[in-house]
Design a protein around this nucleic acid. Sequence first.
DNA 1: ATGCATCGCGCG
DNA 2: AAAGCGCGCGATGCAT
Length: 531
Amino acid sequence: MFIVVSPGRLRAFADDGTPAGEVDEIDPSARLVWDDTRRWYPQLLAKGIRVERCVDLRLSHAILRHSSFTASSELARAALGPWDEQAVLDEPRERGTALFDLEAEEPRPEADPVDEWMLQREAVAASSDPGRLALLLAAESAGALIACEMKFAGLPVDAAIHERLLEQVLGPKPRPGERPAHLEALKQVLVERLGFDFNPDSAVELLKALRRAGLNVASTSKWEIREVDHPVIEPLLEYKKLSRLMTANGWNWLEAWVTDGRFRPEYVPGGVVTGRWAASGGGALQLPKQVRGAVVADPGWKLVVADAAQLEPRILTALSRDQRMAKAGEGDMYEGIVASGAVATRAQAKVAMLGAMYGATTGESGRLLPGLTKAFPQALALVERAARAGERGEIVTTHLGRSSPPPPDDLLAGANENAAAESRARSRARSWGRFTRNFVVQGSAAEWALCWMAGLRGRLYDLADGPFTARPHLVFFLHDEVIVHTPDHLAEQVAASIRDAAAAAGRLLFGELPVTFPVTTAIVDSYADAK
DNA sequence: ATGCATCGCGCG
DNA sequence: AAAGCGCGCGATGCAT
């Protein structure tokens, strides 16, 4: 059964979409259909209601609007409307410029979610691959539930441990506007070794200072100055490292983002064009290894940290059905690539695979590509095709049907003018090609991860009783990695569920292909101990 | 005072 | 100024 949720109304529908009247309260085992999970779910969670499944019409619309699978649908061909992000963003600008005429504005009636839902069902049913699209929309919507649940539960962070760590590395908490002791001391070393005062926090001043001291550098980035031989370099790199910790995850971060022992960032499913999640608030997806020691399980609980090993190369294997690459991926994929003879070392295998998926042309990665291409022609042909399509301004699509955004209007502009314009056009086209090359792999990997997590969510819930935060539950997700917070005694079962869900995700996406998706699991008290 | 672009760096 | 994809954020410096 479906229940369509809208302000003041709960409309029930049978599985085939026929109306079944209105209901008084939400049945959490029904599939809830709503405009935006972020709008409805937090208040349900606050009331202790955990929803089993949903249809997030906003996220689904974004997929269907652009998917090449539904290009001929009514939904995709309609003018931009209230379900389109762009229309919503443009809206305030179209209306008067006065800032305070909000009262004067007619509160426009909300679009009916039932109409949109029906359009979406039609679009999926008539699409070139209803099965894949339905899976994608279900996974995307499950992700929306999980994002809200993870924010509700929060990632357990021990502020005392974090503060101790900061004090060890930076010195005692400074007064506002001052550098902590260790950073200040390092600054003095820098000044001493260059022979004059300057502010190392300013990239402009720092660059001038380095050049004044006779160092031939064009920027102050780590990569470049690392190569320079001068007594200021070592303390400067150290300064940058400490400074980064201080500004990104220092005392301010702790105060702003960690309350009651929980870090609660906003996760943004579908926030990245490829379908990856984005996050806002506290840099959730950039939590540096340096501070992971402060992420600790509650007493009597454990963290189960799991990571999908070499996910993107394996996704490429499955997408391309490259039997030789599948063989190389039976164990550690990079070792397998070495064994195939494509490259000499594991490190090279890794660099070469990254280069294949990102479109490297130069450097070590570029040099290794011919060897990789020779060993795995089928897999490499897939990414090459995606790149060429992008260069021509065409759309590419992930395994389950998420399509790349249209190329910039000027992608091919200037191709037939003078030599300089032509070269710029080629460079633009190549750059877009690298994006589309990566899009199919990164986007399909994101789909696998969503299916993994959605399957895991259900398995975790079934492991215990009570409110979902009393059961094992997801507390963190980072592209190919999850953290589950679980009562001690269930940790082994959680680890097994994580592996089961990974295998199930592989079958859901790719059927019985001989491609495996191994996950490493670690049962730990502290995130820092996971690897 | 406030907004925006750039740099630099963290993560996958 | 990373070669080679995708992000978010803070500090700085300039424009408004």
